[in-house]
Design a protein around this nucleic acid. Structure first.
Length: 597
RNA sequence: GCCCUUGUAGCUUAAAGGAUAAAGUACUGGUCUUCGGAACCAGCUAUGGGGGUUCGAUUCCCUCCAAGGGCACCA
């Protein structure tokens, strides 16, 4: 559609004016529907370039623009006059998708699309169904998205939930744009945090209980971690002991520790899998830190004195040599231990080794990792120049309490599981007046709860922090995930009713009125495109709210299923179109669209 | 100190250099013997301060102020 109108404008302009005139104009949807379906500032831009030319030659602002153009003589005092000329020219040969053109404001040309156009777009949505909104921007491209990255032996907190939500949504948007996406997860299976947890387990045997679900066991391990982390800071004896445990984990010399390690690793990883299942994520690849570390070390050692250098006994990378905005970071400590930077180096190389044809490797993390990732990326680019353009780091804000930063070391965290459970309970309470089996009830409560959480993350641009406040962040009304699901479920029950009354969707039974919801539905593919270009799911989230609102308003003002109404088939068609768009859109956010709730 | 992010309604957030800055929430009032009230309709309130570029700036540039993050052996 955009192309058609753009072509129309270009044709007119090239007929009227010199085609060499390189005009930098825009054609977009006005934010306010009153200003038409499309709007262009071409007249204003054209007028002001002409005026600048004239100003240069006669040195005055107060002028009329006049001249003989291909189509005759024009005299323009304002951009509106120019817009008027363009409008008249277009209306000479009005295409059927256009209803009207209006000039507004300082000289905007506003296009109003015709009834016929909207009928055709509803029909297209019905035909495309679950494919509506897809595009081919990334067709044939291979993309790996790494996100979530929880550490075994540590609690899965709501920050992980945030990364998972964003990563999953980005992955789905990429897929919708034709990309072949591999989902990757990176696990810190070694390191001091593991030693801290094992120390906590050794000191609190009750936490080693193998009774109960693996979720329960994983929770105990999380508590053990908090215990160990606290002891590490407060107690010198404990610190020594934990450091000793850490060594034993590395060299696997202690049978008891090995046993605890294996159990703890399995249990926490399984608990993560349960969460992923609820959240709708299925990872294709898992990378373990212990292995990336070895690969990274090799890379660093091979490049000492080339890219890396020794300094105070450590191996460092002086990134400021290449870019003054970057800084020096340690890759191998003076104790000969690799740092996170080195492991990241190994991870990146391993990813490209896993799939040498990969076009893009995306990593999603919190923004606190932005600076050092830039340094690491610089180092990798020097070693592998061919990777430079194929790496992308997406950083999101942090989940924080009003009181300050959340940290798993201190134990002032909300685990992903506890949040999910709390929200699920709230949903269940709201569902009491409806009749579901226990299995149905549980599934729906999970889907709605996940939706409330995910939407609260995805409704805003990725960069910003989220101030976590259970009462305020998790909403079921208004601007919320459940609101979207509710609208979808209600539309579905209308479709059921239509089926019972034998009213089939008919995109040709158009009423004269054009509903606002129709003016939004056809834009979905454009929204998806913008989302994928900017890696920003919030465009989809905001769009869905607008569509849902428009549909609910349509629902409130119209009787949709009505045998006496000749246009009922069209209204049913709109309802079908709405459910397709909503379902596809929710899918992109990683949210389920239940038919009933 | 240097670098990176970010400052929009009481609160949480939108806005691709465009038009009267848009929603939710909160608050006030209204809708309902039609299809699911997790709804609909109406009202109320905002661009941190100061310059600049532009026909036009929340958006770009400069400066000041404020918040958060990062800056050598943690991840």
């Amino acid at each position: 559609m955009q192309e058609k109108i753009e072509k129309l404008i270009k044709d007119v302009l090239s007929e009227m004016f010199d085609p060499d005139e390189n005009l930098n104009y825009t054609l977009e949807h006005p934010s306010d529907l009153k200003n038409g379906d499309y709007s262009t500032n071409v007249a204003m831009v054209f007028f002001s370039t002409l005026r600048q030319d004239v100003r240069k030659s006669i040195g005055s602002d107060n002028i009329n623009i006049s001249g003989d153009y291909n189509l005759g003589h024009f005299e323009w005092k304002t951009p509106r006059d120019c817009a008027e000329s363009i409008k008249n020219k277009i209306l000479e040969n009005k295409p059927d998708f256009l209803a009207d053109i209006q000039i507004a404001g300082a000289g905007f040309i506003n296009f109003h699309l015709s009834r016929k156009f909207f009928g055709r777009s509803v029909e297209k949505i019905l035909n495309d169904g679950e494919n509506f909104g897809k595009n081919n921007l990334l067709k044939g491209k291979k993309v790996m998205v790494e996100y979530t990255d929880p550490n075994p032996f540590k609690p899965f907190h709501i920050g992980h939930l945030m990364t998972n939500t964003i990563g999953e949504s980005v992955a789905r948007i990429l897929e919708f744009s034709g990309a072949d996406v591999a989902r990757a997860n990176y696990q810190g299976d070694v390191g001091l945090h593991v030693a801290k947890a094992i120390y906590g387990l050794l000191k609190n045997e009750n936490l080693q209980s193998k009774k109960g679900s693996h979720n329960l066991q994983a929770e105990n391990i999380g508590q053990a971690y908090v215990f160990g982390a606290g002891a590490y800071e407060d107690n010198l004896e404990a610190k020594k002991e934990i450091d000793a445990i850490n060594k034993k984990i590395y060299n696997k010399s202690d049978k008891k520790i090995n046993e605890i390690y294996e159990w703890g690793f399995d249990v926490t990883m399984e608990a993560f899998e349960d969460l992923y299942k609820m959240l709708g994520t299925k990872f294709d690849l898992y990378f373990l830190e212990s292995q990336m570390m070895l690969i990274g070390e090799k890379i660093v050692h091979a490049n000492v004195d080339k890219i890396f250098e020794k300094s105070d006994g450590a191996v460092v990378f002086k990134a400021e040599k290449y870019d003054p905005k970057l800084h020096t970071r340690v890759f191998i400590t003076s104790q000969d231990l690799p740092t996170y930077e080195t492991k990241e180096l190994g991870l990146t190389e391993e990813k490209f080794k896993t799939d040498p044809d990969m076009d893009l490797s995306i990593v999603v993390t919190a923004s606190e990792q932005m600076e050092y990732m830039r340094v690491v990326a610089k180092a990798i680019s020097l070693i592998h120049p061919e990777f430079e353009k194929r790496m992308k780091h997406i950083t999101h804000g942090m989940m924080r309490f009003a009181s300050g930063k959340m940290g798993s070391r201190k134990g002032n965290v909300i685990t992903g599981e506890s949040l999910l459970n709390d929200v699920r309970d709230m949903v269940s309470e709201k569902m009491t007046d409806r009749d579901f089996s226990i299995v149905e009830q549980e599934k729906i409560a999970t889907d709605v709860g996940v939706s409330a959480i995910k939407y609260s993350v995805l409704k805003q641009a990725i960069g910003g922090d989220i101030i976590y406040d259970f009462e305020k962040s998790i909403s079921f009304e208004g601007d919320s995930g459940p609101y979207l699901q509710y609208s979808h479920a209600r539309a579905n029950s209308i479709l059921e009713k239509a089926q019972k009354e034998n009213i089939l969707p008919d995109p040709h039974a158009m009423p004269s009125e054009i509903f606002e919801v129709e003016k939004l539905l056809y834009k979905f593919p454009e929204i998806v495109l913008r989302s994928v270009e900017e890696y920003e799911p919030h465009y989809v989230a905001n769009y869905l709210i607008e569509v849902a609102r428009a549909y609910n308003s349509f629902y409130g003002n119209n009787l949709i299923v009505d045998k006496k109404d000749k246009t009922s088939g069209y209204k049913v068609a709109i309802t079908y179109a709405f459910t397709f768009v909503m379902k596809n859109g929710l899918h992109l956010l990683g949210i389920e669209a239940p038919k009933k709730m």
